[in-house]
Amino acid sequence: MNDSNGNNQPMLEVHDLHVKVADSGILNGIDFLVNAGEVHAIMGPNGSGKSTLANVLAGRPEYEITQGEVVYRGNDLLAMEPEERARQGVFLAFQYPVELPGVRAWQFLKAAVDALREHNGEEELSAREFDRMLREKIQMVEIDPDLARRTVNEGFSGGEKKRNEILQMAMLEPKLAVLDETDSGLDIDALRIVADGVNKLRSDSNAIVLVTHYQRMLNYITPDFVHVLMDGRIVRSGGPALAHELEEKGYDWIRESVEASQ
């Protein structure tokens, strides 16, 4: 079923993924499968390994993969450098977006878009073409247009940083977007704007993995699947109802029911 265009190929297959950092295991065998058009929510208490999973998918270097594999559109994702993953359509919205002192958002975004275009065999955008594209996306994610003239993330409020991540996502149009606690630190208005932005970017040809501690973001972005992560394992998977159940009963409820079944 995996034709060369990847039409029926899964977007992401994670098999038995084990990850260590500084000698302690933080992912202890993760399996899940994401198809194009799907939104998966990864939920879990603090320290469950969900941010690790998000970062491993994007290629953060300090993790050691000890076992398992990750296949992205038929290719070994773990063998790729982070920039290669990005150019092939993987995007991580950071939980803590990094400040780039002195680097203008405009310049950074242009370089990112051009790197992607070069990878796809397309020409660099002219400044004018890029400006037009940027203006369009800025409106889409309801961000302050001034942000593009400012230094990346420097002096941005928490909400601005998160919105800027969604702007970057809109510019890069990833096939697989991983959102790492994008809802944390957002007030309700900012959350709505960020969620609206994500919903606008959602399509049949891309997939989204939402990593979150709380259910509230899922009120705005309805997932197709919810996975609950605990101690580095997915302990339960289900539909959107699972998130509501979690919100009501808390993670202890899952922990107890998992322990009871062991």
């Binding site: 310049q107 790197a115 992607l116 890069l172």
Partner: peptide, 19 residues
Amino acid sequence: TLFYMQSRGLDRATATKML
């Protein structure tokens, strides 16, 4: 910082030069 820039498609050399 480098990982952030790489995750947007810039290779290390380009990212370093930009910084």
